[in-house]
């Protein structure tokens, strides 16, 4: 097959991923508002289009037409790039997420993943850490006390949840013997890892909830104490980029949970991509459900949870898993 064809296919693939992601992020906002509405016995947005289905488009247009205000004494450059940094890292992490088995069209193998790096898992970890820079820099640069407090909390949270988040994935790496996400999914051909690693799943999920900066771990943007936390000073499209980052992150966590523990695209009857989408949606639904159910933790409580409960459990889990597998 020719080079040009390869480029075209690559671009089609990327644009499809990007379009689906941004679309999913936009509709995730609608889904969240709808579900929260239903959980609170109200209908949620229902005016723009049938059942409010055009609401994300209206919101996006509104954001695009809003003025972009830069507060006095802000660190201009950092203030300007911070939201893009957050959105960029979360979107970039999707490069290594496989959406299905290799397609074979006309004798040419087309992998359904943008970049099957053999250090995929490490890259996702690294990107999720870099994403915190968006929070910390954005909050610090806006020269507002609320923002700075949000930024400090974001950074303080990151140094707490990263450790259990990565340690919880060690058993998955042990079981599949690879960092590549495609290999990890392939290793779950027979059974999803959640069946053999329920504890690792629980640890990963709690840490991932903290990573998503959502209730009950939404201290960086706790709206009733810090206005909007690190993005208090943001407006217009930059504010929207923070939101894109947050909601793409929800989708990303759904995808990662699906890949690491729920068996990725494997599943009976339905085509792989459908299975994968279904599995992706489980986590966001649960996150929204959590938002409607639980109150917010203090951030020292989160640190205690991460350092004194999750990390020891994760370490223990590694040893026990190793003993079972070696034995």
């Amino acid at each position: 097959m020719s080079m040009t064809m390869g480029i075209v296919v690559l671009f089609v693939k990327m644009l499809a991923v990007l379009a689906v992601l941004l679309g999913m992020a936009a509709y995730m906002v609608l889904l969240e508002r709808k579900l929260l509405g239903w959980f609170q016995l109200r209908p949620g947005p229902n005016r723009v289009g049938p059942f409010g289905l055009l609401q994300p488009i209206a919101d996006g247009l509104k954001m695009l037409l809003k003025e972009d205000i830069i507060p006095r004494d802000a660190e201009r450059l950092l203030f300007l790039i911070a939201p893009a940094l957050l959105a960029l890292t979360t979107l970039l992490a999707f490069a290594v997420v496989p959406f299905g088995p290799d397609l074979v069209i006309g004798g040419q193998v087309i992998p359904q993943v943008i970049s099957d790096l053999n250090v995929g898992l490490l890259m996702i970890m690294a990107l999720s850490s870099i994403g915190v820079y968006g929070v910390a820099l954005g909050g610090w640069a806006s020269n507002s006390k609320f923002s700075l407090l949000g930024a400090i909390r974001g950074a303080a949270m990151m140094i707490s949840y990263e450790l259990p988040l990565s340690l919880a994935l060690v058993p998955v790496v042990m079981l599949s013997g690879s960092f590549s996400l495609t290999d990890i999914v392939n290793a779950q051909q027979g059974y999803p890892f959640i069946l053999v690693q329920p504890l690792a799943f629980a640890l990963f999920f709690v840490s991932a909830m903290a990573e998503s900066k959502r209730v009950p771990f939404d201290m960086p943007e706790a709206e009733n104490e810090l206005m909007a936390g690190f993005h208090t000073e943001y407006s217009g499209m930059r504010f929207a980029l923070f939101f894109v980052g947050e909601y793409v992150n929800m989708v990303l966590l759904g995808a990662l949970t699906a890949v690491f523990f729920l068996g990725g695209w494997h599943g009976p009857f339905l085509p792989p991509i459908v299975w994968f989408l279904i599995k992706i949606m489980i986590t966001p639904f649960f996150l929204i459900w959590t938002r409607a159910s639980l109150p917010r933790l203090r951030y020292d409580q989160l640190m205690h949870l991460c350092w004194k409960v999750l990390t020891p459990l994760a370490l223990l889990n590694i040893i026990v898993t190793g003993a079972f597998m070696a034995g």
Binding site: M3, G6, L10, S115, D116, L117
Partner: peptide, 8 residues
């Protein structure tokens, strides 16, 4: 470009 590697 067919290879899902660092280039893509």
């Amino acid at each position: 470009f067919w290879e899902p590697g660092a280039l893509s």
